[in-house]
Design a protein around this nucleic acid. Structure first.
Lengths: 341, 341
DNA sequence: TTGAAAGCGCTAACAT
DNA sequence: ATGTTAGCGCTTTCAA
């Protein structure tokens, strides 16, 4: 029924437990003959090393924890793909946590990660987890932030310049002649959100006669976007926007659906711009203009930073890597062909 | 530096290790006073239980392993969301594995799962893993298949009737008057693929004068779809399809992009139908007709089956739950409005 | 109600 | 080259 242990393998191969262990960890120290016998015994018994026991003894699990806000958003799965690539190359596996699935969100996962003795944590923070991460680090588990920086520069981070991203979006909409702008996003306590808004606002400040309305809520998914889009129809005409900056593409795609469902034309009546440039934005009904983040690269870079820190915790200096966002113009803000890749 | 152990907590609270353990596992057996002291010590030290040690002793990890083919496909993340919901309710956490990220694919993950001592495995199988799963079960780890059945009925499974799905697709295209049909999919050794094709083929057999061409390859993602779509332009006119059934929506979305990029009109020149009905299909440039699978429910049902089996392995009887697929008609096969939700 | 001690499976220091 | 043994942190009898 239950799995075979090193003891069983040793008995079958007529060697000691440490020889089996050496076959597993230092094959060169073992004679070819014993090695063969052990290998055969392992196969015969279907022996699989018990990681719990190994971890307990060695202290390291060769596991990285990755806490994501929402696994349904392709931006995050791209990040995850990047993380997995870099992790695999360095011999690590990744424990993927989807905060949305837990009532206690990301901090629930941090605790799971710590219990599971991961060697390090990667996190796309939404709530206020920095204190928790401090605790983790004090107890020996390093962490790297993805998608936002740590103002105190205590943790390494890999992010995109969200202030610049917000400015890019504003500049583009303003250059199109739009003057009644809306920002739609999630909680402004989430740093990324706030920065995108601040960049947006800052650029607008240079233009007199432009109005900005800020709509924020708890959710930033397609469904909530749809509701925002629909709600606009019931507003007095003079309160309607002629352009919307949505804090991520899922939200933007939903907003467009809501707008078109209630008879608005995008971009003629309302231009819409998103953030992240997820893969589906290019192929959307109305191809979406978006501020692109190099999601996959962010993931692999962050994993690399973390792995370096794990390998040499003493010489560790926090590093903040900030990528430049890139504006991808498509039909949702007026590119007539909408064919930009 | 490194984390505190039960021993440290015991020392600080001036009780024995077993009392600390009891506070953690059987609080009612401990006097209120000791409980308080222990709780304070735990907080003061930032103590977090070492899961490795606990697992080693108890044998159970309260972890479920979920092996997915490709985390970038929303169908799979929907399944994962369902799994996580059901798992969480039952007190389990899930270890999410993305086969695409490993050279050894899913079997690499099965080994990781076994090493990590998961209590059970959920898998959307692509390769031939049934032998591996047999081994796992023999060693005490049950498994449930998602998205396909086990012909030998040795494992429980949750799937959609892919034969029926294939027939649904064929019937729809034929009713539209299409006569030169293509099937585009991945490896036919993958059971789901093969069934979708067989259902498709079976329905076509009832119609004389209809041609079927089958194109299969290693990948079933948007990129490979794009290439298939493009390639059609370079074919002699009499060899071109007037309808394409793609084995999943990612592929279908890619095919449409490839077709439109080379000047074909969808659905006028070529109708395209996908499979899964991922969330982005409704909002695509040309809204995609698709065969819907209840992805999230499949995930939660599968997790439930697995958890039941873990709870009572002796009374276990394999169960196969098969959902009926549903045809969702949109513009890519001619619905003029393309507004079906 | 509490404590002492054995042992889960593995590795690593030490001995042979 | 191989074997013996202690111990990682926890839970769980069993005794007190």
């Amino acid at each position: 029924m239950s799995g075979a242990s090193i003891k069983d393998v040793a008995a079958l191969a007529r060697v000691s437990m440490s020889t089996v262990s050496n076959v597993l960890n230092n094959p060169q120290r073992v004679s070819a003959e014993s090695r063969d016998r052990v290998q055969r015994a392992i196969e015969q018994l279907g022996f699989v090393r018990n990681a719990a026991a190994r971890q307990l003894r060695v202290g390291s699990s060769k596991l990285l924890g990755l806490a994501l806000i929402n696994i349904s958003n392709p931006f995050f799965t791209d990040v995850a793909t990047g993380v997995e690539e870099a992790a695999r190359e360095a011999g690590y596996s990744v424990l993927l946590g989807n905060s949305a699935s837990r009532p206690d969100g990301e901090s629930g996962f941090l605790e799971l990660f710590e219990k599971q003795q991961v060697d390090g944590v990667l996190i796309v923070p939404s709530g206020d987890v920095l204190d928790k991460l401090d605790g983790l680090r004090r107890r020996g588990t390093p962490a790297v932030l993805i998608d936002r920086v740590d103002d105190r520069r205590a943790f390494s981070s890999v992010s995109t310049d969200d202030l610049a991203g917000g400015r890019l979006a504003a500049k583009h909409l303003l250059s199109l002649g739009r003057r009644n702008l809306w920002f739609i996003g999630g909680l402004l306590s989430v740093r990324q959100m706030n920065d995108r808004l601040e960049g947006f606002r800052g650029m607008i400040a240079n233009y007199p006669g432009v109005s900005l309305r800020v709509e924020t809520g708890a959710f930033v998914d397609a469904t909530s976007g749809l509701e925002y889009g629909r709600a606009i129809a019931s507003l007095p005409v003079d309160q309607r926007p002629d352009a919307i900056f949505a804090a991520n593409d899922m939200l933007a795609l939903g907003v467009i659906q809501g707008l078109t469902a209630t008879g608005f034309r995008v971009p003629q009546d309302v231009a819409v711009i998103g953030y992240d440039d997820i893969v589906f934005s290019a192929a959307a009904a109305i191809p979406l203009t978006s501020v692109r983040q190099p999601s996959r690269r962010m993931g692999s870079t962050a994993a690399q930073l973390l792995i370096d820190e794990i390998a040499d915790p003493h010489n560790f200096r926090p590093r903040s890597i900030v990528y430049e966002p890139q504006l991808i113009i498509r039909a949702s803000t007026g590119d007539p062909k909408g064919t930009t890749p």
